[in-house]
Simulated assay, not measured.
Amino acid sequence: MTPNTDGLPGLEVVRSIVGALLTWGLVACVAGLVISVIVWAVAHQQGNYSHASSGKTGVLVAAGGAILIGGANAIIGFFSGLGAGI
C-alpha cells in the first residue's frame, strides 16, 4: 500500500500552505542570523562577552534551523522509508 496523493480534497492547498511555511521559516532564519551576527559583533566590540556569546548561540540556532527546514523533505522521506520497512 502506498500513500494516495489524490484521495483528499484540498491536498494542493495544504501543499501550498506547507511550502509557504517553509519559505517563512527560511526568511526567519535569515533574519535571525543577521540579527545574531550584529549582536555578536557589537557586543564583542564593546567587550560585553555575555551578549557576544548569545550572538554566537543565535548564529548556531539560525543555521541549525535552516538546515532542518531545508532538509525537511529528505528527513521525512528517510523516516517514512524506515517506517515502510517495518
Rank of each mutant, 00 (worst) to 15 (best):
L21G: 11
G25S: 07
G25P: 00
V34G: 08
G25H: 01
V13W: 04
L8M: 06
A28W: 04
P3V: 15
V27D: 08
L11N: 07
I38V: 15
T2N: 08
L8A: 09
L22M: 12
V14F: 12
I38H: 10
S16Y: 06
V14H: 05
V27S: 13
C29S: 01
D6Y: 06
L33N: 00
V30F: 07
A20L: 12
G19V: 09
I35T: 05
E12M: 06
I17Q: 08
V30S: 00
V14C: 06
S16E: 06
L21Y: 10
V34I: 14
D6L: 10
V39S: 07
C29T: 03
G25R: 02
L11Y: 08
T5Y: 05
A31L: 12
E12G: 09
G7S: 08
N4D: 05
I38Y: 14
L22S: 13
A31E: 03
I17L: 12
V27G: 10
A31D: 02
V39E: 02
N4L: 07
N4K: 07
V18W: 08
V34W: 06
D6F: 09
T2Y: 03
A28H: 09
G32R: 01
L21F: 09
V14W: 06
T23S: 09
V39T: 13
T5K: 04
V37N: 07
C29V: 05
R15E: 01
I35H: 05
R15A: 14
T5V: 11
L26F: 14
A31S: 07
G7R: 03
